[in-house]
Simulated scan of single mutants.
Amino acid sequence: MKQTRVLHVSDTHLGYRQYCSDIRRNDFFDNFEQTIEIAVDRDVDAVVHTGDLFHGSNPSIQNIDRCAEILGQLDRAGIPMYGIVGNHERKNDTQLLDLVGRMGDVRRLKKEPTLVGNIALYGIDAIPERRWEGASFELAEPPAEATTTVLCLHQSLAPPLDEEHAKHDLEDVIDRVGIELDGIALGDIHRPKSDLIGDTEVWYAGSTARTQKNQTQAGTVQLLKVKDGDLSRKQIGLDTRSFCPITVEFGSDDGAGHLRDRLRQESLQDAVAALELTGERGAVTANDAVTAAREEGAAVVTVSDERGRVDLDSGSLDVREVASHDDAVEERLNDEEFPSVVHEADSRIRTDDDLPTRTDPAADEFESDLREAMASEFDDEEAATVEVDE
C-alpha cells in the first residue's frame, strides 16, 4: 500500500512584531516559508496547520498578501493545506483561514472526515474555556478506505501536558468524539511534546518560531507517515534566528565595562539578545544595555531590568510570563469572542499616534462602528432565539 505523508505545522503567528521589531515579524514569515519549502521538497500529500496561522484576528493586508504568496508554492506543487482556527485568530464572522482559502488550495477541517491518502483527517477549531463543557466533539465515521484517523485540535490538554499547565483532560476528548482515533495533532503549546494514551498517539508540533524568552526549543514541525495502518512521526527542526538569553548581574561598582565583558562572552551576531539585568542598580541604564548589545552585533534586543527589585514569595501566586503588556491584553481579547471592530478599536487605541488625546473626540472615532457592531450582534441573537411555526 502507498505511504501517505503529511507535514504537521502549528502556531506560525504570522504578523507578530515580537519586541516591536519588524525583523522579528519577518522572521516569523521566513520560518513559515521554510516549512512550506520542506513540504514541497519532500513532496508530501498535504500540509496540516493546527491553529494560530496569524498572530491576531485582524492582520494587515500586507500580512495576508505575504501569507498567500508563500502558500502559492504549495499550489504550484499541487499540495493542499488543511487547517483549523486557533484562539489568536478566531473571529465571530468569516475566519481568516477561509479568506486565505479563496486565494489557494487551503481548506478548514471539520467533524466530517477529509481523506488524504489513507488518513481520515478531522478538525475542531479552538474552543473558549467557558464553552468547553457544552461543546460538541462527536465525529462522523471515517470512510472505509481510511486506515488511520487523526483529529486536529488547538487546546492545552493533559496529557501530553501535566495537569498543572493544562486546561482540560485529553481523555475527556477521546470519550466524546465517538470514534476510534489513531492520532491527535495539537496546537496552542509552542514546544513539541507527545504522549501515548492507550492506542492513541498525541503530540504538539511546537511553534515555528520562538515566542517567549524561556522557550528552549523553537522552530519545529512534524512529518507524519502512514503505511499499512501504522502511524509514525519525525520531528524536523527549522533554521531559526539564534536567541541568546543573557543575565548580567551588577555589583555596586560595576559599570559599562562589566556589561560589555559579559556580552562578549556570547555570540550575538544577528541574534535576538534577551537581556536580564539583576543585582545592584547603578549608572548603566536599560538603554545603555540595548546600545551595547547592538554594538556587539545583535539584530534585536529586549531588556528586563530587575535591579533593585524586592524579592517576593511567589509560591502561592499564579504567575504567568508574558512578553509585554500589549501581549497580555491581546491574549485576553483573543479569549473572548468579540466582534472584529472591538479588536480594531483596541489596536488603534494602543498604536495610533494620530488618535485624538481627549476622551470625547477619541470616542467619536469609534462610535458609529461600535453601534453598528452592537446592532448586528443583537440582531443575530434575536434571530437565533425566534421560534418559527411551520
Score class of each variant (00 low, 15 high):
residue 146 A to Q: 01
residue 5 R to H: 08
residue 166 A to S: 13
residue 319 V to F: 05
residue 295 E to V: 06
residue 325 H to N: 11
residue 324 S to T: 14
residue 149 T to D: 01
residue 230 D to H: 15
residue 50 T to L: 02
residue 180 E to C: 07
residue 36 I to E: 01
residue 151 L to F: 12
residue 321 E to S: 11
residue 289 A to C: 14
residue 52 D to Y: 04
residue 320 R to Y: 11
residue 110 K to Q: 12
residue 163 E to S: 13
residue 305 D to Q: 11
residue 333 L to T: 10
residue 377 E to F: 09
residue 331 E to F: 05
residue 340 S to E: 14
residue 84 I to C: 04
residue 87 N to F: 06
residue 50 T to E: 03
residue 296 E to Q: 09
residue 103 M to N: 02
residue 249 E to K: 15
residue 106 V to C: 06
residue 146 A to E: 03
residue 12 T to K: 01
residue 257 G to Q: 09
residue 208 T to A: 09
residue 286 A to M: 06
residue 45 D to V: 04
residue 277 L to I: 10
residue 250 F to Y: 14
residue 326 D to Y: 14
residue 334 N to C: 13
residue 73 Q to S: 09
residue 266 E to C: 06
residue 139 L to E: 08
residue 61 I to Q: 04
residue 147 T to S: 11
residue 248 V to Q: 04
residue 251 G to V: 01
residue 363 A to Y: 07
residue 29 F to K: 04
residue 261 D to E: 13
residue 351 T to A: 13
residue 50 T to G: 01
residue 14 L to A: 07
residue 137 F to H: 00
residue 311 D to Y: 08
residue 374 M to V: 14
residue 156 S to V: 01
residue 381 E to I: 09
residue 171 E to M: 11
residue 37 E to N: 10
residue 301 V to N: 08
residue 142 P to W: 07
residue 280 E to H: 10
residue 312 L to A: 11
residue 326 D to E: 13
residue 336 E to G: 07
residue 196 L to I: 15
residue 288 D to C: 08
residue 31 N to F: 12
residue 178 G to H: 06
residue 53 L to H: 02
residue 339 P to T: 07
residue 228 D to K: 14
residue 127 I to T: 08
residue 86 G to S: 01
residue 328 A to V: 08
residue 243 F to I: 05
residue 251 G to M: 02
residue 120 A to M: 11
